[in-house]
């Protein structure tokens, strides 16, 4: 089989520990990169600030879904017990909303949890096939490796200059993320 042209999808650089990584992140931010990320085995405090990241929107999503779920189940319990299938039990009103609070609460919690988890999975943009996985060295990210990755889609990406910049700010094992598919 003939070797095909390998496309460069980005550059990956390794850094020595959380201190170096957070310094590098601030420099990347100041340089004006957009399509980049830092990778670490665990969350690093203060990294959002160093990267210039905004707060996650997840909280709003969860609040909205909890409200929607709460109103939904309130209406549903009302409709089933006071409209569609009315019956009196222990002398309570058809719509005994106080007795429905445990159900209301459970549904709010359930919807919040689903939104928190599946919303998070949506927001983190996880892909089984991401350019960083072209690097063999990247396997260290879940062990003890700290990395900065820049994608080629970034407007200020330049194959030579970006690589030099990553080396200047202290990156080691700087490598191109290349694949032939």
């Amino acid at each position: 089989m003939e070797a095909t042209e390998r496309t460069t999808y980005g550059i990956l650089a390794q850094f020595d520990g959380p201190d170096k990584l957070i310094e590098a992140a601030a420099k990347m931010r100041d340089k004006g990169f957009k399509q980049w990320d830092v990778h670490s085995p665990y969350p690093i405090h203060g990294m959002d600030g160093a990267m210039g990241e905004e707060r996650s929107r997840l909280g709003l999503m969860v609040a909205a879904m909890a409200l929607l779920g709460g109103l939904g189940i309130l209406y549903f319990t009302y409709w089933t017990s006071a409209v569609d299938y009315r019956f009196i039990i222990s002398g309570k009103p058809y719509f005994s909303y106080i007795a429905y609070i445990p159900i209301f609460f459970a549904v709010c919690v359930l919807l919040s949890a689903f939104t928190a988890v599946f919303g998070m999975l949506g927001l983190v943009n996880s892909k089984f096939h991401h350019p960083v996985f072209y690097s063999d060295n990247f396997a260290k990210v879940t062990d003890d490796g700290f990395f900065v990755s820049v994608l080629a889609e970034d407007p200020s990406f330049d194959k030579v200059q970006t690589k030099t910049f990553l080396e200047e700010i202290g990156g080691t094992n700087v490598e191109y993320l290349e694949g032939d598919d």
Binding site: D37, H39, D48, S112, A116, S126, F128
Partner: peptide, 27 residues
């Protein structure tokens, strides 16, 4: 699920974890 330890992942992840902790407590 294709986890790559990116900080753009961790920030949502940590918030999701906090929310789950927050709703599990009254639960």
């Amino acid at each position: 699920l294709g986890w790559r330890g990116g900080n753009r992942q961790w920030k949502h992840y940590e918030l999701a974890y906090l929310i789950l902790a927050g709703i599990s407590t009254p639960l």
